[in-house]
Nucleic acid binder design. Structure first.
Lengths: 121, 121
DNA sequence: TATCGATATATCGCATGACGATACATTAGC
DNA sequence: GCTAATGTATCGTCATGCGATATATCGATA
C-alpha cells in the first residue's frame, strides 16, 4: 500500500496559499490544474489543495487584479490560463516579506521549539 | 506620535496562535491578560490578539484538555490562571514540529522569495 | 469626587477562506 | 463500454480571528 502522507492542517495554510500560487505564476503562466499539481508535488503531497479551494482562490486573485486569465479552447480540453500582473508581483514581494517576518517572529516566540531551516544552496 | 507598527494579517495567524499560547504556558502558569501581553510584546506589537480572540481560544484549549484553569479571587482582581497539561505538552511538541515542517516546505515552494531566518545564539 | 486609563474576563455576530461534495465534459487506456 | 485522469465550477459547512460590547475593580489625577 502507498505510504500515506498527512497533509498540513488547513488552518496552517490560510494566508499562505495565495502566496504559493503567485510564486508559481511568477515563474511561468499556468492553468489551475497544473498549479495545483505543482504545489502538491513540490510539497511532497503535504499541500494538496482541492479543486474547491483552488478555483475560488484563482477567481479571487483575478478579482483583485493580481492575475489575469485567458481561455484556451484550441485543444479538446478547455483550459483557463493565468498570468501574474504587475500588481500581482508587487503583492508577491510584499506577502513574501510578510511571511519571512512572521517566521522570524514565531522563531522568537517559540524559543526552544523552533528549529532553524537549513541554509539553502 | 507613536510609531505605528502594522500587525500581521489575521489569516497568517490562523493555526499558530494555539501554538504561541501553549509555548507561553509551557514556560510558566499564566492568566489570559498576561499571555496576551507577552505575545504582543515578544512579537514587537505585530501579534496583538484582541480579548475576543484570546478568551475563546483559552476556553477551546481547556475544552480539549490541553490546559486547565483555576480562579484566583485572593486579590481585588479576578484572575483565571492557566496551566499546561501533559496532553498540552504533547500537542505543543507535535504542533511545533508541524510548524517547522511547514516553514521548510514554504522555503522550498517560495524559492527565491524566501530568506532564511538568521541563526539563533 | 469624578473621571479616566489600565487591568481582567466574557460573549456576540460578522467575515473570511479551506474543505468535501457534487456536477459536468473530454480524453486515454483497458 | 468502463474507468481513471484531466479540467473547471459552485455549493454549503465549518472553524476561527476580529471588533464591539458588557461588566467590574483599582490607581492616579484633576
Amino acid at each position: 500500500m502507498a505510504k500515506k502522507v498527512d497533509k498540513f492542517e488547513s488552518d496552517l495554510l490560510r494566508g499562505s496559499l495565495d502566496l504559493m500560487v503567485l510564486a508559481v505564476l511568477d515563474q511561468e503562466d499556468q492553468y489551475g490544474y497544473i498549479i495545483q499539481k505543482k504545489i502538491r508535488e513540490a510539497s511532497g503531497e503535504k499541500v494538496s489543495m482541492s479543486a474547491g479551494t483552488m478555483y475560488p482562490l484563482l477567481h479571487r486573485l483575478e478579482g483583485e487584479k493580481l492575475i489575469r486569465s485567458r481561455w484556451d479552447d484550441s485543444t479538446g480540453r478547455r483550459r483557463k490560463w493565468y498570468a501574474i500582473t504587475a500588481a500581482g508581483r508587487k503583492r508577491l514581494t510584499k506577502q513574501a516579506n510578510q511571511w519571512n517576518q512572521y517566521v522570524q517572529c514565531m522563531a522568537g516566540l517559540m524559543q526552544g521549539y523552533y528549529k532553524p531551516v537549513p541554509k539553502l544552496g
